[in-house]
Amino acid sequence: MTPPDEKSSRRDFLAGRAAKKEIVRFVEETTPRPAVPTAEPPRPAPPLLHVSRDAMACEFEIFFDPVRYPSGADVSVAALDLVAALEDQLTVYRDTSEVARLNAIASFRAVPVETGLFELLQKAKTLSRQTGGAFDVTAGQLSKTWGFYRRAGRMPSADEIEEALATVGYEQLELAADQQSVQFLKPGMEINLGAIGKGYALDRAADMLKEKELCDCLLHGGNSSVLARGHREGDAGGWTIALKHPLRPTERFAEFTLRDQALGTSGSGTQYFHHGGRRYGHIIDPRNGWPAEKILSSTVIAPTAAEADAFSTALYVMTLDEAAAFAQQRPDVAALLTTFGKHPGEIGVHPFNLADDAWRV
């Protein structure tokens, strides 16, 4: 997704680089479209105000029309402050975070947690169940075993993989609503919110913007997560989002039109290592403990950004048949998966639940 100069990936979204400043600037286009022959030149859309902040190892951005929303800059800065606070709570890379504390002691006793975190874990457990464990928030030890926790991939032994896999299992994440507490029923279990945290932060930020009556806006969380609310002035259909080509990242591959929807995309183009002539990416199938390798990229459109993020990770590790079965269960979720084509440089395109007028190659 645009902008093309962003280099973050979903797995490193909680690397612990706190925000230092906010940047506010005018931009003419958030997602400029390629030239299309028309009978008449299109009227340019009104310029947008762009507020951004570094958080969760990427750049969070909010786009809106400053004419329609003259107080939008102040509201957007407050929403991005919330994102930074959520990073402090959710990161696994700071010993002082609530999630780090949870990982340290929840295998020994139930731990009361903040309301928002408890609700996020409830949602994560539900999404894990819906995907048959292809998304699993309890797979923290697997990331460590393969070296991706510190962005230094390594080939673990079969025994190490089995040992880490024994700590994974969303069914063993006990959530007690009456006490609002969390307990791990498997020794050594650790949660990692890398596949849902950015989307959750976008959902929370968008809710704050709506409370302040900023209802038409586009929110980016790096390259992997987008949330569109309302529509852009001059485009009643919504907001246009561009997707990079999975093999040629300097080229656009597809465009999507979003309105009150979120888009998440997953791939292993930036985090991987080679061993024994094979390539191993950072997205690990929590069902078998091995990096997924069948899918090039997974893009999902869902009602919320948290769902879009989690489902894009889940579909990345699924087979195409599993993805088709999932799409039948969730008709409100659309997906576009790409695979290697028959010839070098070619790709296969596999849409699920995508309306013809919602996207284009």
Results as ranks from 00 to 15, higher is better:
L102Y: 00
P66G: 05
T145R: 06
V137G: 02
G72I: 08
F63A: 07
A85E: 14
Q130E: 15
I62M: 05
S128A: 15
K125E: 08
K144D: 12
T131Q: 03
L82P: 00
G169I: 08
P156V: 11
S157E: 11
D88P: 00
D65V: 15
F64R: 00
G153E: 08
L165K: 02
D88M: 12
G169F: 03
R68D: 15
A100P: 00
A57E: 12
Y93A: 08
A134R: 09
E98S: 12
R154G: 14
P70S: 10
S157K: 04
I161L: 11
L127Q: 13
F63T: 01
T115G: 13
S97Q: 10
S97P: 07
E87S: 04
Q122K: 12
L165Q: 14
P112E: 12
V113L: 03
D136S: 02
D81Q: 11
G153F: 07
G153I: 03
D88F: 02
T131F: 05
L82Q: 09
D136C: 01
T145H: 04
K123S: 15
L173Y: 01
E160R: 04
D95C: 03
G153P: 02
G140T: 12
Q130V: 04
D95A: 15
K144T: 11
F118S: 09
F108C: 08
L121E: 13
P66C: 05
G133R: 01
E162V: 00
R129M: 13
R101W: 04
D95N: 07
S71K: 09
Y69G: 10
F135M: 10
F135Y: 09
S76A: 15
L165A: 14
R154E: 13
R150L: 11
F135G: 06
A139G: 09
C58V: 04
R101Y: 03
F60I: 06
G72L: 10
A110E: 14
K144W: 06
S128Q: 08
T131H: 01
A106G: 06
V83K: 01
G133N: 07
N103T: 10
T126C: 12
F63G: 05
T126F: 10
